[in-house]
């Protein structure tokens, strides 16, 4: 790891100030960033830890909306969202392993937008709003492809607002070595319709499977997606699975998510 200056502000305002200037990087739980720094794949001049910012932590449900602080750990979401939004709690409780879940945060996961991460699927399917230190971003405008988001340099995710769906579930086909999703599908049904978000599968990162959404809006049963075929074009191909395999899994995991919702 290259040397860097380290600061640990107590407030969002202080963190935003510390992130100004050349080559500063926010540090959430560090479960991706610290291994990345250790491999010398990144070398920020200054690291701004968000771990001491109390106002960015916590889970609250009110008026059909679940609000999760950007610095809330996966373990805390698994525990505290269990009653109001069980599908989200179960997703959080299967990220990584227990030690990773003690540190990793929802804001860090969404800001990183790993193409195989779980949280992007929940945010996209539930039509979440990403709240930052300076604005609110509808999730449909947030993800911009592989490891890219609408966040500006130095912008911090302070909260994520999830409209709680009437029915929802996440089905994850685990890649057992990394414990990321080989393919993960989050299905959410609300009065606004059905949204199906897929992670782990596509080279462009998380995406909505609109053909499945249309079919499920008419008939919310696993059978409704049986006849649908996801094209292999644009799917990830690696030693864990070919594009064709992943495309097939998208259909399988969508049906499983609907059955569990």
């Amino acid at each position: 790891m290259y040397a860097f200056e380290f600061t640990r502000p107590q407030t969002v305002a202080a963190a935003v100030a510390a992130l100004k200037g050349a080559d500063a990087q926010a540090l959430g739980g560090g479960q991706t960033l610290i291994p990345t720094l250790r491999q010398r794949l990144a070398s920020p001049a200054r690291l701004v830890s968000l771990a001491a910012i109390a106002e960015m932590r916590g889970v609250a449900a009110a008026g059909g909306v679940l609000t999760v602080g950007g610095g809330t750990t996966h373990a805390a979401v698994a525990r505290e969202a269990a009653a109001p939004f069980p599908a989200l709690a179960r997703l959080a409780g299967r990220i990584g392993d227990p030690a990773v879940r003690s540190r990793g945060t929802i804001g860090g996961s969404l800001a990183n937008n790993d193409p195989s991460a779980c949280y992007p699927a929940a945010a996209l399917a539930a039509a979440a709003t990403i709240v930052t230190d300076r604005r609110e971003i509808a999730v449909d405008d947030f993800f911009r492809g592989l490891f890219a988001t609408a966040l500006a340099t130095g912008e911090i995710i302070t909260r994520v607002r999830f409209p709680i769906p009437a029915r929802a579930a996440y089905a994850k086909f685990l890649q057992p070595a990394s414990r990321f999703a080989l393919v993960g599908v989050f299905v959410a049904k609300s009065s606004a319709g059905v949204r199906v978000a897929v992670t782990g599968a596509a080279e462009r990162g998380v995406f909505r499977w609109t053909a499945a959404e249309t079919a499920l809006a008419a008939d919310f049963r696993p059978e409704a997606v049986k006849g649908l075929r996801m094209a292999a074009e644009g799917m990830i191909g690696d030693l864990h699975g070919s594009p064709e395999y992943r495309a097939h899994l998208v259909g399988v995991m969508t049906a499983r998510a609907v059955a569990a919702a």
Binding site: F6, R8, L27, G30, Q31, I34, P35, R38, Q39, L47, S49, A51, A75, D97, P98, A99, V100, S102, R103, A177
Partner: peptide, 27 residues
């Protein structure tokens, strides 16, 4: 492993298990 995969470095921090190779001392 030095890559936060293996768990040999797990300690408790404020009661929760963490991988001590993926936490900065100052944090």
């Amino acid at each position: 492993c030095d890559t936060s995969q293996c768990g040999a470095c797990v300690v408790h921090m404020d009661g929760a298990p963490v991988k001590a190779c993926a936490v900065l001392a100052l944090d």
